[in-house]
């Protein structure tokens, strides 16, 4: 049983997003020292499966952050 999923389950959608953002934010600077707030917001502003995947699979963080930065710069 994943503790984060368990924690999120009873929360409102808005609260779930907030929690996911809080978890993601400190991880972003490791792959992209700039645009941390934007990347976090971008990953958070999707279906919950996206930020959950990044949190549960750290190796996907870099690629997701790269996608976010690319999209932001277009």
């Amino acid at each position: 049983q994943d503790p984060l999923t368990t924690t999120l389950a009873p929360a409102s959608p808005q609260e779930q997003k907030q929690m996911l953002g809080e978890q993601l934010f400190p991880l972003i600077p490791a792959v992209h020292p700039t645009l941390t707030g934007k990347i976090t917001g971008m990953l958070t502003d999707t279906d919950n499966s996206e930020p959950l995947c990044v949190l549960e699979t750290p190796v996907s963080l870099a690629s997701k952050a790269d996608e976010a930065v690319t999209a932001l710069q277009e």
Binding site: P13, K17, G21, P26, G37, K38, G41, T44, A68, L72
Partner: peptide, 22 residues
């Protein structure tokens, strides 16, 4: 062009502004 306001920027401890219509 269109102004770039998306995505909303996330700040820890600050209520996030995204998806306000949910």
């Amino acid at each position: 062009g269109s102004s770039i306001s998306w995505p909303p920027e996330f700040h820890p401890g600050v209520p996030w502004k995204g998806l306000q219509n949910i």
